[in-house]
Design a binder for these strands. Structure first.
Length: 561
RNA sequence: GGCGCGUUGGCGGAGCAGUUACGCAGAGGUCUGCAAAACCUCGUAGAUGGGUGCAACUCCCAUACGUGCCUCCA
């Protein structure tokens, strides 16, 4: 059974073939940590967790990078407006660093509550500034950049495949474009790799812009002779820059860390074609020989972060890149442009995008006040797992619709599942497999259900189908005597559900304590003697302990209430 | 203006060219000391108009409507 995924590159559901037989490299665009994540944000992380679990179940090892965007994500994705972190800092009277730390911790806590597997690399953009500067340097050396008064930009006209991924019609877009705020950009869709801190402003998060990334004032036409670099005709490079970059290549072939880790890990021969740059960028100072004593501070562009982190950790080509559907036209288009321009290789083989969640039929929007967080849901009595089960009700490619009515439906289903899980405490010892062989039909059907769940996920992460399978398998335990439930088979199914869907059914359905068991027995005796009053009192006592009693034709069964 | 997605019963939501899953909710019934649960039955769902097929919810085309991204947002 091969895994199939809907690949945005091909717009088709493709069979998944990783670069390596055993290992899958995966990059997930992570959160921008300036506020609490809302249900719409969590959708993506829940689906990608299912993806990882499915890959693991298929026998792959997974190396996943998830970024924590803690700098550079502007209020507008198009390099305009304020930095979300700096804005959040002012809102709360803290520094951007404090904001980032607080919300990053909250995000990790949320992942734990939702039972999401931790990525192998959960990395902060601010910890990868040198790598990001290296990438800018590399792009500059290859002639893909230009400088404006507010930053270093990627010249999309130099990357001819720019419009391909999102199938953009740039000419048409140009015609209908909004007023362009930055008239120094050569194309409206050029994007900032590195932005300069505006003069007179002090950001919480800013770094020195290495001198060699800056362009000096333009030279005269005569002086520019011979300054072409890599076929770039622009006169934006001067002789000094060319000289410097030549020197750097000498140094850098020894010192670069940019792809070093990835090289040692993957030993992909194609990496040999990649000419690395220096990692010393952050240490470059405006010192001797520089005519410019002013230090220009700056910060990375949002798009740059993802490429730098993905490539420096996983290598220039990764298997899967995931993200929200909104990122196709801008963020991921830009990631592809800068990554592939730098490496000369395909960046990701599979681009997997989750569709958005609507809320009450309309979009999730801070201004509409419908950005429910885990904390909000908790306040209304819904657990993180209720939310997760709700989200799994629809496939990641589909637009979901969040309503409290639907969340309640998921909550009821979750409660039912937990009560089925509790049956394992109520089957008897004689059913622990010793006196029932593995070819027992009940056992087999439960095993079949476990593999049917796996198959459903292999089919483009069809979580609704997986839930249906679980419903049918667990439902088949209904209205049969406890004595005919195959405990081992039930355990295997529950383990499979927890492994594949991460619902933590086993750990959240403990056995009842001895006192409760005693009350149950007492109640049984009372019922045998038709002492209904005592029986009902005992039932109330159990209810106070959140234990619900059902008197079925096959005996008493308890559940959680 | 550009690029997308969708339209299945009260709600959510799959598969499938030929008995319309599954969950939640509703009505009636059986069972039960009572309650709950369970079980049974019911409401007989596929936007519209064409096309291809013996046969279409399922494939193709068009239309309508809804909705998302391109300015908060996964």
């Amino acid at each position: 059974m091969t895994l199939k995924l809907h690949n945005t590159l091909t717009r088709q559901t493709d069979e998944f073939t990783p670069l390596s037989d055993k290992k899958v490299t995966l990059y997930t665009c992570g959160p921008t940590v300036y506020d609490y994540p809302h249900v719409g944000n969590w959708v993506a992380f829940i689906y990608w967790d299912i993806l990882v679990r499915t890959l693991l179940s298929a026998g792959y090892t997974v190396e996943r990078v998830m970024n924590i965007t803690d700098v550079g994500h502007l209020v507008s994705d198009a390099d305009e407006g304020e930095d979300k972190l700096e804005k959040g800092a002012r809102r709360e009277g803290k520094t951007a660093w404090e904001i980032a730390e607080f919300y990053a911790e909250d995000f990790v806590a949320g992942m734990e509550k939702l039972g999401l597997l931790p990525p192998e690399h959960l990395v902060k953009a601010t910890d990868f500034i040198p790598q990001q500067l290296d990438l800018v340097r590399l792009l500059k050396e290859k002639g893909y950049t230009y400088q404006t008064t507010d930053g270093i930009y990627f010249d999309t006209s130099k990357f001819t495949a720019y419009a391909d991924f999102a199938r953009l019609d740039l000419d048409a877009q140009k015609a209908g474009a909004r007023v362009e705020a930055n008239d120094q950009k050569r194309q409206p869709w050029d994007f900032a790799l590195w932005k300069f801190t505006p003069a007179g402003e002090k950001r919480d998060m800013e770094w020195e812009t290495p001198d060699d990334l800056l362009e000096l004032p333009k030279l005269t036409d005569d002086e520019k002779q011979g300054a072409d670099l890599n076929g770039v005709k622009s006169g934006d490079f001067d002789k000094r820059v060319v000289r410097e970059s030549e020197q750097q290549e000498e140094i850098t072939s020894e010192t670069s860390q940019f792809f070093a880790d990835a090289e040692s890990q993957r030993q992909d021969p194609r990496l040999a074609t990649y000419v690395p740059s220096t990692s010393q960028a952050a240490r470059v100072t405006t010192g001797a020989g520089s005519s410019n004593e002013e230090v220009i501070m700056g910060f990375p562009g949002w798009h740059l972060e993802c490429s730098a982190m993905a490539m420096s950790i996983l290598g220039p080509t990764i298997d899967i890149h995931t993200g929200g559907i909104d990122h196709i036209p801008v963020h991921h288009t830009n990631e592809i442009a800068q990554s592939e321009a730098a490496s000369g290789q395909q960046f990701a083989h599979y681009w997997i995008h989750n569709n958005h969640l609507k809320i009450d039929g309309t979009k999730v929007s801070k201004s509409l006040g419908n950005t429910y967080t885990l904390q909000d849901l908790d306040g209304k009595g819904f657990s993180p797992m209720d939310l997760k089960l709700f989200i799994l009700q629809s496939q990641y490619t589909n637009e979901g619709n969040f309503t409290f009515e639907n969340l309640t439906a998921a909550q009821h289903r979750h409660a039912n599942w937990r009560n089925y899980a509790a049956l394992r405490h109520q089957t008897h010892d004689l059913l622990t497999d010793d006196d029932r062989k593995n070819d027992d039909p009940d056992h087999k059907s439960l095993q079949a259900a476990a593999s049917a769940v796996r198959e459903a996920l292999m089919n483009n992460l069809n979580t609704p189908e997986a839930l249906r399978v679980v419903d049918e398998a667990l439902g088949s335990l209904e209205a049969v005597p406890l004595s005919s439930i195959h405990q081992h088979g039930l355990m295997q199914l529950l383990e499979a559900i927890d492994e594949l869907l991460g619902l933590q059914l086993l750990q959240t359905t403990p056995d009842i304590d001895d006192e409760a068991k005693k009350l149950l027995l007492e109640r049984e005796r009372a019922r045998e003697t038709k002492d209904w009053q005592k029986s009902d009192e005992l039932r109330d006592e159990l209810a106070a302990k959140h234990i619900h009693v059902r008197d079925t034709p096959h005996g008493v069964i308890w559940g959680y209430s």
